[in-house]
Each structure stands twice: as C-alpha cells, then as structure tokens.
Design a protein around this nucleic acid. Structure first.
Lengths: 195, 195
DNA sequence: GTTTTTATGTTTACAACGTAAAGATGGAGG
DNA sequence: CCTCCATCTTTACGTTGTAAACATAAAAAC
C-alpha cells in the first residue's frame, strides 16, 4: 500500500499536475491560473495549497516533467534516425527539439522561463541539467572531446532562439519556414567545426 | 503649437511611456502593472485609458521604442568598431546585442513576447522589421548577396537564444560565461560560410 | 473500540489587478 | 458667455494568488 496516498480525494497532487498540463495544452499560458487548474481538477481553489506551496511550485513541477518528456523525445529521435553519424544524430535531435517546442508550446515556455513566478524546484534543476548533459554528449560525439560546454551552449542557443522566435511569431513575413529551419540547423552544426 | 498637446496634465501619454520604461528598468516585468505605471506618473489608475486602449497597447508602444533604441545601439556598435571587415562588424553587433538584452532586460523580454497580452501595434511591427532589415544587411555584407533571410535567421536565432538563456538563468553552472559567449558568436559567424 | 491527532479538504476574506462606466473639470471654439 | 468635449477621478465589477478559519475523515494512540 502506497504510503503517499492521500486521504480524501485519492490522489489530488497527480490530478492537479495532469489538469495543469491539460490546461496548458488547451489555452495560452497567460490564461492558466491556479484557480482554473483547481476547477479542472474539481476541487476548491484553495485545495492545491496542501500539495503545492504556491502556484510557482505547481508550475515548476509541470516544467520539470516537461524536461523529462523533452529528454525522452530527443533520445527517441536520436535512436530512430537512419543516419548514424554524430552530425546526423544531432540534426535529428534538432528537429525533435523544434517539434517538441511546437507541440508543447505552453509547457516549453514554462520550461524556459516565460513565467517569472515559477519556482526553481530541485526536480526542475535536475531535469533541466539532464537535458543539458544529453545535449553536451551529442555535441562531444562530434567534436571528439569528453566535454563540450561551449559547443553545447552554441547549439542550445541556436535551436532555442529559433524555437522562441517561431513561437512568439517574431519571424519576418515571406520566410520559407521549413527551409529556413533546415538551414539554421545545418549552419549551427557547421559552426561546431570552429569550436 | 502642438496639436496633440493634451489638456490637463500637459503631456500624459509621453509621461506614461517614460514611467513605464522606468518601471521596467527598476522591477521585473511581472511586477509592472498598469496601476503601477499610473502611480509613477502621478495619475489615477484609469487615466491611461484615454491614451492607450489597454495595457497591451501601452506595453506595445514601449516595445516599439525599445526596438528603435535597439537598432540605434547596433548601428552605433557597427560604426565604432575598429575592424572594418563584415565579419568584424557582425561580431561587434553581436556583442552590442548581448549588451542591450542585458542592460534592458525587461524591455527586451517585452520586445520578444514574454507578455502575451502585448498588442502588436503598427509601430511595433515597423520597428521590429527595421531591426530585421538591419541584421539581414549585415549578413548580406558577409555572404556577398543582396538578400540573406536564412542567414539572418541563423544569426538572430543564435544571439536571441543566448540572450534568453542568460536572462532566464537557464545556463548550466560552471560555465565561463564571457568566453562561452565569445565562442558562440564566433561559431555563429563561422556557420554563415555554410549558407 | 474509543479518543485524539493530523492530513486534507471547503469556506471566507483580503489586497491587487485590468477594465468599464459615471461623474467632475477645465480649456477650445462658437 | 456659453457650450462642448477631451481629459482625469471616482466608483464598481469580476478576476487573480494567498492566507486563515473551519470541517471532515483517515490514521494513530491508547
């Protein structure tokens, strides 16, 4: 029997996280409120207090879970690609990165700090660090070194910047998006040779 | 005599913009409210309604002015650099970009969509397009073509991503920041040769 | 098996927010 | 002088996050 099993509701903590993720999938981040999440979970607006100290804590946990899915998605992409060159793997991860940021727009925004009052929970720190390590390893496989923090930063900056510009619709009109994305990923990998 | 001169206050519209910019310089974006700006301007919280239809309109105008200062800052940097090679000019602009995003953190966040309810005013569209054109020209000077939209996207993605990661403190610990920034800018420019 | 404690909910309350509408004010134009 | 209307203030409403007081039921103690 689970020692962490709650008393009344059954398992409200998990339900709140699911309701929050569902809300983030259905409405823009700015509309997602603590009360809205509680409403979706079918509890009073003050109920979450017993499971999350603040709204930032709840969102922080959702962001942490987002990072875990993020790492999984990139892992999957790296495994399932046909080209087995390190560059090909990074390219596949780059595309997976763009897909993830588009598919989970609101959660991605959360993960990268659009909501300032989001708590930097330990699970969040750990999950985001795992993502970083994953990326650094993929880069290190290209450069042939053990560590490649600067290369990883270069890669992350490029793909994150592209994701954000796209998500926030800050791209100029008349841009052939798919081709431009492909080019950006290619140039990003080419730049690694200058490391 | 100025036809747009207001009646009572003297020039409240401009004062509200200044108060807003001041607030954004002194407190995190999330704390800046319409009422806070009105307070700083010394008027009631409903006074802005006669000059800006909504808070998004006010912030949109501040963001537009931010883009203008942004373009000026990059222009200045490009002019005052000693190295007159196109690559050197872009490098100088890259550093100016990073400096601007750090110095005007909150306004920069506004410019790039951290506040969803910010209106996309005509002046905002025009100002951001000017910034894009400026960047594309700097890139075109390197590649030798007339237009370089894909190269400009590559550059913008890289520097914007780096700025955001830094601003949102999503960089891994133990990273030598200045050197890492230098490397990212260098790799970004190197990638342009692959265009 | 009864009582007490504690975890988990609800209700109520408060200060802040953006927005809207109604009332006050004072310069501009007839 | 008088009217009009742009501008500002006051008041009001519904929303938010948070906190405190209260209710309830499961667990723990005896």
């Amino acid at each position: 029997m689970d020692a962490t099993k709650p008393y009344h509701h059954g398992d409200l903590r998990e339900q709140l996280l699911l309701a929050g993720e569902q809300a983030l999938a259905e409405m823009p981040l700015e509309q997602v409120s603590l009360r809205e999440i509680a409403r979706r979970a079918g509890v009073s607006h003050a109920a979450p207090k017993h499971h999350f100290a603040s709204m930032g804590d709840l969102l922080g946990e959702i962001a942490a879970r987002g990072f875990q899915k993020f790492v999984s998605a990139l892992d999957e992409a790296a495994k399932h690609t046909t080209t087995q060159s390190p560059e090909g793997r990074l390219m596949a991860m780059g595309w997976a990165y763009l897909r993830f940021s588009e598919k989970h727009r609101a959660v991605y925004s959360l993960m990268f700090g659009k909501m300032e009052n989001m708590a930097m929970t330990p699970s969040m720190v750990q999950a985001s660090l795992a993502a970083w390590t994953q990326l650094e390893n993929a880069v290190a496989a290209i450069t042939g070194r053990n560590h490649a923090p600067n290369g990883a930063l270069h890669v992350w900056s490029s793909v994150h910047g592209l994701s954000m510009l796209k998500a926030e619709r800050r791209l100029p009109p008349h841009l052939m998006l798919h081709a431009a994305e492909e080019n950006t990923l290619r140039m990003m990998i080419a730049g690694l040779k200058e490391l």
